[in-house]
């Protein structure tokens, strides 16, 4: 690795770590179902960025782009299903607070 890509790696690496911390904090700190999903999306964005960076540094941009596009499609599908489940939960409970989601125990 020459000097410039290494620097790039560190800039991006620190940024990716910051985004991940934001995402983890978002999931841990909230009691809101939608916000938990948003935190998850933030985490996925960090992973996406890391894939792009890895592809650039190793000279595999085409592969990295293909992976990222596939990944985005899957995340959208997953979010649609998650949104549907949250919507139905809201219809039953009239709230999207995780503390109210405690019917299953044992």
């Amino acid at each position: 690795m020459s000097v410039e890509p290494l620097q790039l790696f560190w800039y991006f690496g620190i940024f990716i770590i910051l985004i991940s911390i934001c995402g983890v904090y978002c999931i841990l700190a909230t009691f809101n179902l939608i916000r938990a999903l948003i935190g998850f999306e933030i985490l996925v964005k960090a992973a996406t960025l890391l894939i792009i960076l890895a592809g650039y540094l190793t000279g595999n941009q085409a592969l990295a782009q293909a992976l990222v596009i596939t990944l985005i499609v899957i995340e959208v599908v997953m979010m649609v299903v998650a949104g549907g489940i949250v919507l139905w939960l809201y219809r039953y409970n009239q709230t999207i607070d995780t503390r109210k989601l405690s019917n299953l125990k044992g």
Binding site: S20, I51, L53, A54, L57
Partner: peptide, 10 residues
């Protein structure tokens, strides 16, 4: 798993 895949790619 995604982070891990990205690291393996790197």
């Amino acid at each position: 798993m995604l982070f891990s895949i990205a690291l393996f790619l790197l």
